[in-house]
Simulated scan of single mutants.
Amino acid sequence: MRHIISVLVNDQPRVLARVANLLGRRNFNIESISVGESEEPGLSRMVIVTNGDERMMEQVSKQLHKLVDVIKVQDLSEHPSVARELLLVKVEAGPSVRHEISGIVEPFRASVVDVGPHSMMVQATGERSKLDALLELLRPYGIKEMARTGVTALSRSVARAGV
């Protein structure tokens, strides 16, 4: 089962390496990992996507909590959450096909962020399946370069009755 784990950590050197090493020692494949500032000064949020059953995820959570710089671990797969990824893709695009490519990009709410003599760069955000679908439609034109951020995610707010 696919899990998205949010880990709040102290913003210190080598924390990412220690977390990745811990997962690697336990034979967990990291499908994606993204790290950035959090809402708290001095803390960063890591979002890790991996696969495993509930027992394995519980073990990973316990092991992560043992690391000194780990403040909070949350399996976002257990709660309603929003997960997104950023894609930049450079596509072969001479003047004759640019309008056609723009037509493909528009329904995905993606945007053209750069145009060169023989290429276009498209930026898209969304769930992994949406980005995969966009790539499949762009592939026949020729993908020159591509970069994906990996998943970033937060838990959804919970609506409470009477509030």
Rank of each mutant, 00 (worst) to 15 (best):
D114Y: 08
I4M: 14
E106C: 02
N10M: 11
I4P: 02
L16N: 01
A20G: 03
S6L: 13
I143C: 07
E58Q: 14
G52M: 07
V158T: 14
R14T: 14
S77T: 15
E127S: 13
D11F: 03
M1Y: 06
K66F: 03
V15F: 04
V122P: 07
I30E: 08
I71D: 06
S44L: 01
P80A: 10
H3F: 10
H65L: 14
G116V: 03
G126W: 13
P117F: 13
G162D: 04
S81I: 00
N29S: 13
Q12W: 04
D69A: 14
L67P: 01
K144F: 02
T125G: 09
E39P: 03
G24V: 08
N21K: 10
L76G: 00
T50V: 11
I5Y: 07
S61A: 15
Q123W: 06
H99T: 12
E100H: 09
V82W: 02
V9L: 05
K72Q: 13
G52Q: 12
R14Y: 10
A93R: 13
L87Q: 01
R148C: 01
S77D: 07
E58F: 02
P107T: 11
R26Y: 09
R139C: 03
V112A: 10
R14I: 09
R139K: 13
V163N: 07
G42R: 01
V7T: 07
L154A: 00
E40H: 06
Q63N: 14
D69K: 04
G103I: 06
S61Y: 06
K62A: 15
H3C: 11
G52F: 06
